[in-house]
């Protein structure tokens, strides 16, 4: 057995690479409350692409060892391939988004698409390292490298959430005639009595208070706000239909201090759950702003 493993170094290396690559793809592929990727076919697509990515990463090592340097250019093909994956995800989600009652918004979609591309590169990395260590040392080094890469992949998988930049509290929805307020933040003007009564009965308000200027800038991003509304509506359900423009969930900023007020009509009116959900909304990579990192602000602070 051991003799076989040593004799067929390349085969073992490639196999290990593919296995670890695929395992890390499956580890990163989770269908959660967003139901994306869709089950089962959306997942099949991504697992298949994961196999391709893993194979590419694993095969790159023997190609290098054989001094077959041109084979590396194959990786550029892979990069092209995965950029296409990103484009495909973006196109599909944008199309689907048109028919959602509460939309994800383009920033959220771009975030998801980016994740799909990025994760394929992580798969290549895992496969490459396990294959590299298995071939240049022995198979169990490959095993160890694979496990370490998977731990790195796991660490890279999760991003930050709203709870890292802001606190949230659920506040009652107030109505002053046609004016609708969440706490003290003005949301909109609702004309019809029917809608006002409905909002009084089912309306839910959350105020998000950013901890610092970075949080303020991130929360003011319209894409980030839409993501919060989308997550809330997906999990709590949304009490609305097409052709009911007055019942649309909304997020408005208090421009004086950067607090964000969320107004929503959920199917399940549960204030504490809503607060919990808001805190767990992922921070979208493209929405992150870091004004405190700017040179002017650092001089002032020190």
């Amino acid at each position: 057995m051991t003799a076989f493993l040593i004799e067929n170094k390349y085969t073992v290396g490639i196999m290990l690479g593919v296995i670890f690559g695929l395992a890390s793809r499956i580890l990163m592929l989770r269908t959660d409350y967003r139901q994306y990727p869709t089950y089962p076919h959306g997942r099949i697509i991504h697992i298949s692409l994961g196999v391709i990515a893993a194979a590419l990463g694993a095969v790159a090592v023997p190609a290098l060892f054989n001094k077959d340097y041109t084979a590396i250019t194959f990786l550029t093909l892979a990069a092209q391939q995965f950029r296409d994956v990103r484009k495909m995800e973006r196109d599909t989600l944008t199309k689907i988004d048109e028919l959602e009652l509460v939309q994800r918004g383009t920033t959220y979609i771009e975030g998801i698409a980016m994740v799909f591309e990025g994760r394929n590169y992580l798969v290549i990395m895992t496969a490459f390292f396990s294959s590299l260590f298995a071939i240049s040392f022995t198979w169990y080094y490959g095993l160890a490298a694979g496990i370490v890469s998977m731990i790195i992949v796991l660490a890279l998988r999760s991003g930050k959430s709203i709870s890292h930049i802001a606190s949230a509290e659920s506040v009652p929805v107030k109505q002053d005639g046609p004016d609708l307020l969440v706490g003290d933040i003005y949301i909109m003007n609702v004309g019809l009595k029917v809608n006002q009564e409905l909002i009084a009965e089912r309306g839910l308000g959350v105020i998000i208070k950013p901890y610092n200027p970075n949080g303020k800038a991130t929360l003011s991003n319209l894409g980030q706000r839409q993501a919060i509304l989308y997550d809330l509506s997906t999990i709590l359900g949304v009490y609305r239909d097409d052709g009911e423009p007055a019942l649309i969930p909304m997020a408005k900023l208090d421009m004086r201090d950067g607090r964000l007020a969320i107004f929503l009509l959920p199917q399940e009116k549960n204030a504490s759950k809503a607060r919990e959900i808001v805190l767990r909304v992922p921070i979208l990579e493209s929405a992150v702003r870091m004004p405190t990192e700017a040179k002017v602000n650092q001089q002032e602070g020190s």
């Binding site: 005639g177 046609p178 003007n189 609702v190 004309g191 019809l192 009595k193 029917v194 809608n195 097409d242 052709g243 423009p245 007055a246």
Partner: peptide, 18 residues
């Protein structure tokens, strides 16, 4: 006024503001 506005809201898919 309420009734007309209600109908128009549904027909035009536009929000009523007071």
């Amino acid at each position: 006024m309420e009734e007309t506005a209600f109908l128009l809201e549904k027909l035009l898919d536009a929000a009523v503001h007071d």
